[in-house]
Structures are given as C-alpha cells and as structure tokens.
Design a binder for these strands. Structure first.
Length: 476
RNA sequence: CGGGCUGUGGCGCAGUGGUUAGCGCGCUCGGUUCGGGACCGAGAGGCCGGGAGUUCAAAUCUCCCCAGCCCGACCA
C-alpha cells in the first residue's frame, strides 16, 4: 500500500533506493551525497563489523585510531597517491575563526598519516611486522553518489601493515584477501571472484591491488573489497627504514586493505526481492520474529503462548516478538518481509491448541507447521539452510551470467544482449583495455587468481597472444 | 561537470491566473476489528524551495538563484 517497492524488473535503481529507504536502513542527509545510517542499517553494519573484527584479530591485527585531519602536504608525498586522491579531497582551510597556515585534508584514506607515525615506531626488524587496523569514517568528494554504494562520507575499516620483506607483505595482502572472501561468502552469502586489478584499476600508490568482485542481480559487477600490496612506496615517501637482522638498512614493506559500508549495498543488491530486504541469517540483526495472531477473546492466551516461545528461543537466536495490537497480522507480515528477517513465526489460537507454530522462511516464502518442542532444532536447521540457499542462488546466478568470448564481436554481442561477466583473453596492454572501456563501457573487474598466463587464448581486442585471463563487466 | 526530472502539511501527490490551497497515506483521540498491509467517527498539521518582476489579483506567468534525485564522465 503506502510502502510499495518499485519492482526491480521495472527499474532496478529505483528498486534499490526504495528498499534502502522503506526498510529504513538509511536516509538522505541535509548535505548532498551524505546519508544517515538509520538503526536498522547500522545494526547490519555492527553485525558485519563484529564478524570482521574477530577475523582481523584472529589473524593477529590490533585496532588503533588515527586522526581525521591530515596535513595537506602528507597526501602529496607519494606521487601516484596524490594523483589518485586530490580530485576528491575535502580540505579544511579555517579553524577557530582563523585561516590555517597549512590546509588540512579530511582523510580520503589513511596511508599517509599512518606512515608518518610508522616512521616513529619502526626502527628494527624486531618492530615488525606491525599489524594495525582502524575502524573509521572517510570523506571522498565523489561527483555521483548512491546510498551505501558511494557516499561522500562512509564508514570503513582500513588495515595498514608493515613488514620486513616483500614476500611477507605479499603473503599478508593475500591473507586478507582471503579473509574478505571468507567473510563475503560465509556471512554475506555472496560468492566473489578473487584476483588482481589491472594497472589502470589499481589503488593509487599500490604495487598490486587484489580485489573481491561480486555480481549483483542486474548482472553488474561490484567491487566489494580490496587488498593492496604497497611495496616500499609509502616507506620511501615517508622515509620509513628499519635495520635488518644482518645490520643493513632497508625500507619497510607495506600493505593496506579495506571494506566499507558499501558491503551493505552489496548485500541488498545480491539477495533482496520485490517484497523488500532479504538478509542472510549470519548478518541479520534479528533472525527470528514472532507474530502472535489473536482476537480480543483469546488475546491473553495467545500472547502468553508466544511469549513463552519467545523466552525459549531468545536463548539461542536473535529473536523479537511483535505483539502490539496497533497493527494487523497482515501488516506485521509485510513489515517482517520488508525488514528481511530470515525466519518468521506465526502463532494463533490454532497453533496454541495444537502446541505448534508456523515457520515462514523469508528466502522462499515456504511455510511449515512445527511442534513447539521441535522449534529450536527446526529453526537452527532453517537458518543454516537459508544461509546456504542464498549463497547457492547467488552462485548459480553468477555462473548462468558468466560467458566466454573468443572474439570481439561476440564480446560486444554478449554485453548488449545478455550482460553479465565475460571471461576472455587479454594481452595486458592498457590501450586495449581503454578501447574496450570506451567502446563498450565494460572494464576489467578482475584477473582471477591462479588463472594467469591467459591459458592459450588471444587478446579479445587486438588478437595478440593473451598474457592474462580477464573478467570483464559493466560495474558500479 | 554535461543531460533529464522534481521542489506544495511528516511522506506521496493534485491543483496552469480569481474567495478560506485539496486528496491519499501517516499522525492524535474514541470505538469496532485482527490467519497477508482492517474499518467508522472526530481532530491536529501548509507564510506552496528562495529572491526579484509582470498583474487589480501569483502555488499558477517571466527571470535569477538554491537544493535534491535520476542518467552519463570519475571513483570503494
């Protein structure tokens, strides 16, 4: 009724915006390009944050916090870095009513301020590795913004590590890439491709950027996380050297890696439907919602019954009960679906009499009658199954929409008629990559891990022997 | 930065020169309801994005400005 969501078949962007606004995940802020993350959206972020934070700590990282304001000159110290970020900087020029001697940039990423500190903290190989993560907000003055996917200010996590060798840095870069992949697949139920970015797509200041790349329901690609091997670029820019075990002096090797509130956008676009949000149970702030169905004459008994279920279930699941009499059951069902709650329990006089409950799963809409004493076990099973189903549904979708192309005309034909991911050979030249982008809007999303060498393919554009196997797609 | 669209109660909209600006949803109060977004009754809430102009008269016409969204180029 009042909360109609535009069907995604009709207008995918509008569908996405409708879900974000109507499920009350976020709202537009007074400042252009900024959004308010509302409690329901923030709860998802907190779920993500705690899962990731555990994984970071398990891999030996510690949290710290660095300042929001960075001296403008710091950002200019690494040549590629400044080129990449200066167009989107927000800069503070006044403080306390006076013009500042040196403008202060609001961090677009923290490599520079962190490496200025690492210079003080690292002298010896004994100080390494230094493994630090921070949870922070970032400002990037983007021309075009979109709720969660690209906002002027966003929340993220950025890991910044320092190592004694190139090999160790590379190992760390890949370790964190795999942490991201595991998180995407096991928590978000989102299958991702892992691999390298091409030269033109990599992070400003990195030697190598690795990415996890996912397919959304409109078949476009979304970069969901990146892990960078920074080589010695920042150590040189900030003059961070250490004494090696054999007494020599060397620059420190670095990595950085991050994921942001964009993940929430990915989550929405990967699983949701025309009824609203669909959340994987592992990230659902509420896993189970109980909706009592009562009439005036049996209200007390039904509510009593469902409250007993609630007390039982809340010990094991993130459970909520909606027993207000302001809204009809139908309204509550729709609301539960809009919010993406994985398992809904309906219980009225019928269930009360039979000591049962109706379980409804959000992903398929399937309804099950379950005896009260089997409820916990059944929900546990359902939750596992929903998590699984969402993952496999997304995986199947990606597979069905991943195509092979061996010549440029079929490449273009696939993009126009079917869209999705295209696997093909690439000679490695930025010129071919740029031409393809110009002519088709498709970019290299990823050079998949373990597939380097391009097998025995030839470049999709110029026909020369392929150096790489590349996955092309239109991206967000 | 280019193109398009839109600014009118909290939200979505109608109103293309003429008393007192409407409708739906939401909100408040009372009552009846409640197995897929219930219903009845009574209310509250708006200097129509801002400025200037045209006119006897402007939400409505003209000009300027501002803001937002969508689509492109750039980006997590």
């Amino acid at each position: 009724m009042a909360e109609k969501i535009t069907p995604k078949e009709q207008n995918y962007s509008q569908w996405y915006v409708d879900i974000v606004l109507k499920a009350k995940l976020a709202d537009y802020a007074p400042v252009k390009g900024c959004m308010v993350i509302r409690p329901r959206g923030f709860a998802i972020w907190e779920m993500m944050k705690s899962a990731l934070d555990n994984m970071f700590k398990e891999t030996g990282h510690q949290n710290a916090y660095f300042p929001l304001l960075i001296p403008d000159s710091f950002l200019k110290k690494e040549a590629e870095h400044v080129k990449g970020f200066s167009p989107e900087l927000a800069v503070v020029t006044h403080g306390g009513g006076e013009k500042l001697e040196e403008p202060l940039a609001i961090r677009p990423t923290s490599e520079t301020i962190i490496w200025s500190m690492y210079k003080k903290w690292i002298q010896s190989y004994r100080d390494l590795p230094l493994l630090i993560n921070q949870w922070a907000n970032i400002v990037r003055w983007e021309k075009r913004t979109r709720l969660f996917l690209r906002t002027t200010e966003f929340l993220w996590q950025e890991g910044h590590t320092a190592h004694a060798s190139e090999a160790e840095a590379e190992e760390e870069t890949l370790r964190m890439l795999m942490v991201y992949k595991k998180f995407a697949e096991e928590f978000m139920a989102l299958p991702v491709l892992t691999g390298m970015k091409s030269e033109s797509e990599k992070f400003a200041g990195a030697v190598q950027t690795y990415t996890i790349e996912a397919m959304m329901q409109d078949k476009r690609a979304l970069q969901t996380g990146t892990s960078h091997n920074l080589g010695q670029n920042f150590a040189r820019a900030f003059d961070v050297t250490y004494q090696t075990q054999d007494g020599n002096l060397d620059y420190v090797w670095a990595t950085s890696w991050g994921v942001s509130t964009r993940l929430i956008g990915a989550l929405i676009m990967a699983h949701s439907d025309n009824r609203g949000l669909v959340l994987p149970p592992n990230l659902a702030p509420t896993e189970v919602l109980i909706i009592p169905i009562f009439q005036n004459r049996n209200k007390a008994e039904v509510i009593g019954y469902t409250r007993r279920l609630y007390e039982q279930l809340r010990q094991e699941f993130r459970t909520e009960i909606d027993d207000g009499d302001q809204n009809s059951p139908g309204w509550k069902f729709s609301e539960a679906e809009l919010r993406g709650i994985p398992v809904r329990i309906e219980a009225g006089p019928r269930e009360l009499n039979k000591n049962q409950a109706v379980l409804v799963r959000r992903d398929t809409g399937e309804k099950l009658n379950v005896p009260a004493d089997e409820l916990k076990a059944k929900i546990k099973e359902l939750i596992r199954d929903i998590q699984n189903t969402l993952f496999h549904r997304a995986l199947t979708f990606r597979k069905e929409n991943t195509h092979q192309a061996s010549d440029y005309s079929s490449f273009k034909e696939i993009l126009e008629s079917r869209a999705g991911f295209i696997e093909c050979g690439w000679c490695g030249s930025p010129e071919c990559e740029a031409k393809i982008k110009e002519e088709t809007k498709a970019t290299i999303r990823v050079l998949p891990l373990g597939r380097n060498g391009g097998d025995d393919k030839s470049c999709i554009y110029c026909g020369a022997k392929a150096k790489e196997l590349a996955v092309f797609a239109k991206a967000y």
